[in-house]
Computed example of a mutant assay.
Amino acid sequence: MKNKTMYALLISLFLLSGCDMIDYHPYDVRIKGETDVNAHNIERIEANCKGKTTLRFAVMGDSQRFYDETEDFVKTINKRNDIDFVINGGDVSDFGVTNEFLWQRDIMSKLNVPYVVIIGNHDCIGTGEETYKAVFGNTNFAFIAGDVKFICLNTNAMEYDYSEPIPNFSFMESQFEEHKGEFTKTVISMHVSPVSDVFNRNVSRVFHHYVTQYPGLQFCTVAHDHNVTVRDLFEDGIIYYGSTCMKDRCYLLFTIKPEGYDYEVVYY
Rank of each mutant, 00 (worst) to 15 (best):
N3Q: 15
K4F: 09
M6G: 08
L10V: 14
D20I: 14
M21P: 06
I22W: 14
H25W: 14
V29H: 10
R30P: 08
K32S: 13
E34F: 00
E34K: 14
T35N: 06
H40E: 07
N41D: 04
I45P: 06
A47C: 12
G51D: 07
T53Y: 11
R56I: 00
F57N: 08
A58K: 08
A58R: 10
V59Q: 05
V59R: 01
M60W: 07
S63L: 05
R65N: 13
D68Q: 14
E69F: 09
T70Y: 04
D72W: 13
D72G: 13
N78V: 03
R80D: 05
F85D: 02
V86T: 01
G89F: 03
G89R: 04
G90I: 07
F95M: 14
F95Q: 11
V97N: 06
T98M: 07
R105L: 06
R105W: 04
D106A: 08
L111V: 12
V113M: 11
V116K: 02
I118L: 13
I119V: 15
I119A: 02
N121T: 09
H122A: 01
D123N: 08
D123T: 10
C124P: 00
G126F: 03
G126Y: 01
T127Q: 12
E129T: 15
E129A: 12
Y132C: 06
T139N: 12
F143W: 05
F143K: 06
F143R: 07
A145I: 09
D147Q: 04
F150H: 06
T155N: 03
N156Q: 13
N156S: 15
M158P: 07
E159P: 06
E159W: 09
Y160P: 04
S163Y: 05
I166P: 03
P167C: 07
M172G: 08
E173H: 10
E177K: 15
E178R: 15
H179L: 15
K180P: 02
K180R: 15
K180T: 06
E182K: 12
E182Y: 05
T186A: 03
I188L: 14
M190F: 09
V192G: 04
S193P: 13
P194M: 01
S196K: 03
D197N: 13
V198N: 13
N202K: 09
N202C: 12
V203H: 03
R205V: 11
V206N: 08
V206P: 05
H208W: 08
Y214H: 07
Q218P: 01
T221F: 01
V222Q: 09
H224N: 12
D225S: 15
D225N: 10
V228Q: 09
T229N: 08
V230Y: 15
V230I: 15
R231Y: 02
L233S: 15
L233K: 11
E235A: 15
D236G: 07
D236P: 12
I238G: 09
Y241Q: 02
Y241W: 06
G242V: 03
S243G: 14
S243R: 01
T244G: 02
T244M: 01
R249N: 12
L252R: 11
L252Y: 03
K257N: 10
K257F: 07
P258T: 04
P258W: 06
G260L: 05
D262A: 14
Y263Q: 11
E264I: 11
E264T: 11
E264Y: 09
V265I: 15
V266S: 02
Y267G: 12
Y267F: 11
Y268R: 06
Y268D: 11
